[in-house]
Design a protein around this nucleic acid. Structure first.
Lengths: 129, 129
DNA sequence: TTAACATCTGAATGATGGTGCAGATATGGA
DNA sequence: TCCATATCTGCACCATCATTCAGATGTTAA
């Protein structure tokens, strides 16, 4: 990567700051994968869905819909997304489909985020408390 | 919360599954806060930006722009969002503004997610390998 | 002061994403 | 077979959001 093609040369650019980072910062595909993981948790419905699954063993769509107060259609859409990303797996028992977390990783990230959310609590509603 | 207002009563509803979860699953404001944390990491540019800051001590906008290959305007918008959410803090030194992570929490979540991203690697591009 | 420059900001745009709706699929019971 | 039901799917709508562009703000040096 070129370091000299830009304008700021005197004050701004700090080669000693950025050169050691050149190969370390995530890029391209890896950055997309990283952001992709968080995308799955960045929606309240999905976050609650995954949280419910992390607290339980397995739950059917109808249970989830009732528990979260969302339509079964909405949850089905979200569950399909989560299934495509291999975050949840499903078990069919007759007409009922049970979902469970397929990935222990998400449980960790979710627990981490939840702990932080409860610690830092009021994000930007109130001024710096 | 009503458990009987819905239709499925024979097979689907499992009161023994959902009643113990009724008070435990995150709801409302807390769910929004939880999802809000992950929203900040759900964009490749922000994820890389925060990753760069987590590897370094502090970086100015110009350094970040060069390092990430994004316009300074785009980064400034993102940095404002991150500053509003109290995830980064800034230090002004003349014309140059240096940003750093304000929150050790994000560093944890980011490291966790990155570890998982590198472990699980190819998300849904390839069929189940 | 004027010029150069690092950063910020508002508006506009193009893309993405969550959900409702209606209909389809699949399973179990009569 | 026919009906009820649990889940899935395609389409459409609306909201959100990341980025660009142009201009504004604030700072340093001459």
């Amino acid at each position: 990567m070129e370091l000299t093609r830009h304008r700021c040369e005197v004050e701004c650019i700090h080669p000693e700051h950025i050169t050691p980072l050149l190969g370390k910062v995530v890029t391209g595909r890896e950055a997309d994968d990283l952001a992709g993981i968080f995308e799955l948790l960045a929606d309240p419905t999905r976050a609650r869905l995954l949280h419910a699954l992390s607290l339980s063993d397995e739950l059917c769509v109808c249970d989830l819909a009732l528990l979260l107060g969302r339509s079964e259609s909405a949850l089905s859409h979200q569950l399909r997304l989560l299934r495509d990303r291999r975050v949840v797996s499903r078990r069919k028992a007759g007409r009922v489909v049970y979902y469970r977390l397929a990935d222990k990783h998400i449980r960790h990230v979710l627990a981490d985020g939840l702990r932080h959310a409860r610690e830092v609590a009021p994000r930007s509603e109130r001024q710096a408390s």
